[in-house]
Amino acid sequence: MFRNNYDNDSVTYSPTGRLFQVEYALEAIKQGSATVGLVSKTHVVLVALKRNAEELGSYQKKIIEIDDHMGIALAGLAPDARVLSNYLRQQAMNSKMVFNRPLSITKAAFSIADKAQENTQQYGGRPYGVGLLVGGVDETGPHLFEFQPSGSVLEYHGAALGARSQAGRTLLERSLEEIKTASRQELIKLGLLALRDTLAQDKELTAANTSVSVVGIDEKFTLYDDEDVQQWLDLLDSTANSRNRDTHDAPEDDNDNTTAPDAGVDTEGDVPVQDAD
């Protein structure tokens, strides 16, 4: 099922100057379950939807702590994310040992960006198959970056990655002003609302499948999983996707979501494809 002759490796340009292998790597992100990040003036929140391969299996970790002041959330190939998170942890430790200062979030994000770029210009490897949200607080305040396998890193007020993430992004765009001034709790709630919008029809957020993390100015990185998540889920009126509920309490949602390119495509719900998480 080759699409063309130019997509076999990441060192060949197509006649229009595209790099298909890199673009395919970006597709791998969409195979993973969704994750959402947002940043206020004081806090960064990462939330994620975890998957389990089978009913009795454990859920794949989606949020990884890097240091007291920084964490990442992933969508795509989890093993690739572990490689990158190990690298980030090394960078963070090095910054503390050599400079006696916490690693700057910008430097952290660009360090993995430059690492990922190498895999798009040299033969022998493949690009990373994972997208990351890098969130943390440093001397210049809270920051949220979106990392892509292409080596692109951009700073956002709010970002979403993974399956049906466009729906989450739509909510974030609509709540942009709220996000900027939100309190810690409001920020978590907005994050969960965006994550909820990415859910497939028959799914809802549960303490088992939801991860929440917070880091703030004067607040160390904290990850909430399992029963600790319940307090945050209790903030929501419902844990099911508003699009899939019969109650039309938020009718304006419908129009927005139909414009999302990948919304509702994956109707099989949370069945993992290619082991992406």
């Binding site: 960006a113 190498e118 798009t120 292409s150 080596g151």
Partner: peptide
Amino acid sequence: GIIPDGRHFVN
């Protein structure tokens, strides 16, 4: 162009 390539160039 390809922005990550630009960073590679600058580095």
